[in-house]
């Protein structure tokens, strides 16, 4: 009898504690982000697992993928389709069905070259189911900061070689100019 009364009084006290907790919450600042007007700090999204993306190897939109099919085999949801290209190791097709993906990271862990990772795309809208069937190569190309007209590794090497040659020629020209200006400068100095 007395125990029941004491228990009930304790219960009443706990109700009061609950009221104070919600009252405290009522007065504290909000935790949510009001999306269209504010967005989260990108730093807080670093741990967010969005849809997969290919890791860029350079600024021309080339990836690290060697078409080894490890990710395709590791995927429990069969959401990846990778087809090797005609020449070289680079994939011709890298399709990713986000509707089947469970974001388990088995593909990311199985990749020998570290060619795929999770993106941090939080603000994503798909009007149809098909809009979630993503072409990762196209996505990678769209993120390229420099345009590669040829689009192949050989062409890229050629461009790099040409650039290196141009730089070298420029440096030579500068050296030549310095050598030419040097005597003139020393001649002019005493004047």
């Amino acid at each position: 009898m007395f125990k029941a009364i004491i228990d009930n009084l304790k219960g009443l006290y706990s109700l009061l504690v609950g009221l104070f907790i919600t009252g405290d919450f009522f007065l504290s600042p909000q935790k949510t982000t009001h999306y269209p007007r504010k967005v989260d700090d990108p730093e807080t999204l670093k741990s967010y697992r969005g849809p997969l993306e290919l890791v860029p190897a350079d600024n021309y939109g080339n990836g690290k993928c060697i078409s080894c099919q490890m990710c395709v085999r590791a995927c429990p949801g069969h959401c990846l389709t990778v087809t090797k290209g005609d020449k070289g190791k680079e994939p011709k097709v890298y399709l990713y069905d986000f509707t089947l993906c469970c974001l388990c990271a088995a593909c990311v862990e199985s990749c020998p070259t570290g060619a795929i990772r999770f993106s941090h795309k939080v603000y994503m809208v798909a009007p149809t189911r098909e809009a979630l069937h993503l072409d990762l190569i196209a996505d990678l190309k769209s993120r390229a900061t420099k345009i590669d007209p040829m689009g192949t590794k050989a062409a890229r090497l050629k461009v790099a070689k040409a650039e290196a040659e141009a730089a070298k020629a420029k440096a030579d020209a500068e050296d030549a100019a310095k050598a030419k200006a040097g005597p003139a400068g020393s001649a002019g100095a005493p004047a």
């Binding site: 919600t22 919450f25 009522f26 007065l27 600042p29 909000q30 935790k31 949510t32 009001h34």
Partner: peptide, 12 residues
Amino acid sequence: AAGFIQRRPGPY
């Protein structure tokens, strides 16, 4: 009140 207690803005 529901919004504030759950620390969100409520109707906005």
